[in-house]
Nucleic acid binder design. Sequence first.
DNA 1: CGACACCTTGAAGAGGTTCAAGAAATGTGG
DNA 2: CCACATTTCTTGAACCTCTTCAAGGTGTCG
Lengths: 266, 266
Amino acid sequence: MTYAATAALRIRPVMGVQQTFYQRPVNAVPATPFKIACSNCHLGVMCTPVQLSDSEASRLDELVATRRRVRRGAALFVPGETFTSLFAIRSGFFKTYIATEDGREQVTGFQMAGEILGLDGIACGSHSCSAIALEDAEVCVMPYERLDEFSREIPALQKHLQKILSREIVREHGVMMMLGSMRAEERLASFLLDIVQRLHMRGFSSSELVLRMTREEIGSYLGLKLETVSRTFSQLAERGILSVRHRHICIRDASALRAIVVNAAH
Amino acid sequence: MTYAATAALRIRPVMGVQQTFYQRPVNAVPATPFKIACSNCHLGVMCTPVQLSDSEASRLDELVATRRRVRRGAALFVPGETFTSLFAIRSGFFKTYIATEDGREQVTGFQMAGEILGLDGIACGSHSCSAIALEDAEVCVMPYERLDEFSREIPALQKHLQKILSREIVREHGVMMMLGSMRAEERLASFLLDIVQRLHMRGFSSSELVLRMTREEIGSYLGLKLETVSRTFSQLAERGILSVRHRHICIRDASALRAIVVNAAH
DNA sequence: CGACACCTTGAAGAGGTTCAAGAAATGTGG
DNA sequence: CCACATTTCTTGAACCTCTTCAAGGTGTCG
């Protein structure tokens, strides 16, 4: 077993079934192996790539001030909270959402290990959305001031933070496309493909997954009501494209699922 | 007339009616006057605020490599094009949109003078969306490498670029909310309020505006068909909230318009 | 094991889309 | 500068997708 794989296990222990959501099926072909320990972690990509000298690399170890545990259901930050740090997800699963005065909520994303939370706070010094852990989680706390200071010394870091921000913008463009011009079935299909692809990058199955969010949260993200999400799951299952047992999803016909997203003429 | 107002005229000449879209009505109370010439320009905010020494400020004049004219209907950049520069809009009006293989388009935003284009290109070194001028425009070309270099010397600049990126993320959260959980009328109302507020910040009327985009482009942005946009305009006009003469819109009852966005219970 | 949260499914209804036709602006070329 | 072609906009009617309301089922957790 490579160091990379060990690291992966460290990030997301694969133990008992109860704990092991998004578990890699026993008989699955090992997914594309990691090149380095943190290759599936933005922070990792932020630290490791290419042009870092040893001294720079060791300097980066100081970037993470502390770790912070977030229990399932608890908030990592809430709107209005002063922005002090970015958070790299070490383990666990989050949702972010915004709320309006009149009580409407819109889930803006689901984040998993290796992704960065808190980017919204840079804009005006306080957070504008909530980040809620959907399973017990641990994050690396990176004080923004420190990050900024390090960026000045390590140009690659500065550039990388900008890339992470830009990537989020591009991701949201995709969400806008989905919300603006796809039908329910296409939205759910592209959602599942997105989640499963990101899990696959982390070494999990590309066909099986356990959702960490409710139908209502999926619906909020997709701009649909929970009943519509449920019905659409059922329809895809009936057509043999998925098996759905509550939150346990198995993609039986991935190309059919992709075809739904792409071929959806009109 | 203050220098600020002069500068505003320089940016957007107010001459004949044919040329003067978003014209400030003759009898309108002058809108919140500019504090400084570029206060309504991200680039300006990037350059001018607080902690810049004279030498730093003069250094920033070198940031803009060239100006570039973009004719109405022409592209500033297209998907796949190598990312080299950010663009500050000096005058004119743009739309950005992404397209899928199957020909669907989604307008991701409308940009006006003082706003920054090209942020999507940072993510992976090439642009992922198109930027099209909706009226003859001029942009300041800021080579990214140079920007990056300057950022290292001028910490405030580095921070400001991050803020611009983060602000775009937050803006898109708002779009997601709109697309995900608002009805047609609410979407159009929030769209108009957004546009008119941004125009007002630039010294134009807070009640009159001339749209630079078609119903179809508005519809694409709002996740609606052009017919629905047209009908919704008509309904709002019938209720006395707007006057609509093609692209010339007059907001007759701004608080009613705001109430549509906020009070939309459910 | 029982309470609670979550999910599924049905039926009726609303909001938005589609298709179609005509009217109003805009731009073009003579 | 005017007439014509083109684009853009409006409006109607039928249709369809998704929502709403409601009831019952399933899984989870204390």
